[in-house]
């Protein structure tokens, strides 16, 4: 059991190494002009240079900050709104059509509206990121709250639990798997929108770094930025997964 896990982990690293090797090969053979495709060696060197002598670190923290603030804002709003809507059938009926109308709206269509309302600044980015990453969490929370086992509410009534206790001891833990799944999806959305907003509004961040590198034909810098974005996505997803399996230990017992 444990050994097979290790074996699969090794295999996945071999695949990743293979992809990088192919990339190196393609770059060395000049299958694509080095102006557009630097090898992993050059991209790596550029990444290190960016951190040691350039302002890549500022860009990185910029993107992380945009992403984190937008995502946290969306989490708080999404869980609070979702709890309100999900725990009341009347609310679900009243609000559902509006949600269905807003949800499929491409967030990119919201950006011009946000720019008109806020200008090209951090507030605009915060609004767009939060708006975009709100939906998975909102819908997850609504579903989670609506799907709480009715028997548990009866248990709560028999025990005379307060409204607050019912929310924090029954409804929230019961909805936690749905909420966390929503938060995981939102994390990706938040990263995408952070990059888009930085590109559009010229905010300090990897989006801006990537765009400027591309315009200046600094392909190695461009790839360094892209690699860094990939790493952010990977690490945040890993962290989220670890948080999930910690919070949902009881679900592992079920399987």
């Amino acid at each position: 059991m444990r050994w097979s896990v290790i074996a699969w982990r090794c295999a996945s690293f071999v695949v990743a190494a293979g992809v990088i090797a192919l990339w190196q090969l393609a770059a060395d053979r000049r299958l694509i002009s080095p102006v557009f495709l630097p090898g992993p060696d050059r991209a790596w060197a550029s990444l290190l240079r960016g951190f040691t002598s350039g302002d890549l670190l500022t860009k990185l923290t910029g993107t992380l900050t945009h992403m984190a603030y937008g995502w946290l804002l969306a989490s708080v709003a999404g869980i609070a709104l979702g709890a309100m809507i999900g725990s009341s059938k009347a609310m679900r009926i009243y609000v559902a059509p509006t949600l269905e109308l807003l949800r499929p709206l491409p967030v990119s269509a919201i950006i011009p509206v946000a720019i008109a309302a806020f200008g090209l600044n951090q507030s605009m980015a915060l609004f767009v990121i939060a708006f975009g990453s709100l939906w998975p969490m909102l819908l997850g929370t609504i579903h989670g709250f609506a799907a709480v086992e009715p028997r548990l509410y009866e248990v709560a009534r028999v025990l005379h639990m307060s409204r607050l206790a019912v929310i924090f001891k029954i409804a929230l833990p019961s909805a936690a798997p749905d909420i966390l799944a929503g938060m995981r999806l939102s994390l990706t959305v938040a990263l995408i929108l952070a990059v888009v907003c930085e590109m559009l509004a010229g905010l300090d961040g990897l989006g801006q770094w990537v765009l400027l590198s591309a315009r200046a034909f600094r392909s190695a810098d461009l790839f360094a930025g892209v690699m860094l974005l990939g790493i952010i996505g990977y690490i945040t997803a890993l962290a989220m997964g670890a948080a999930e399996s910690r919070l949902l230990r009881w679900q592992a017992a079920r399987r």
Binding site: R151, L152, E154, K169, P173, S174, L248, W250, R254
Partner: peptide
Amino acid sequence: DYGKALLPWR
């Protein structure tokens, strides 16, 4: 239905 009346996360 004890399965529904117990909190599975506790």
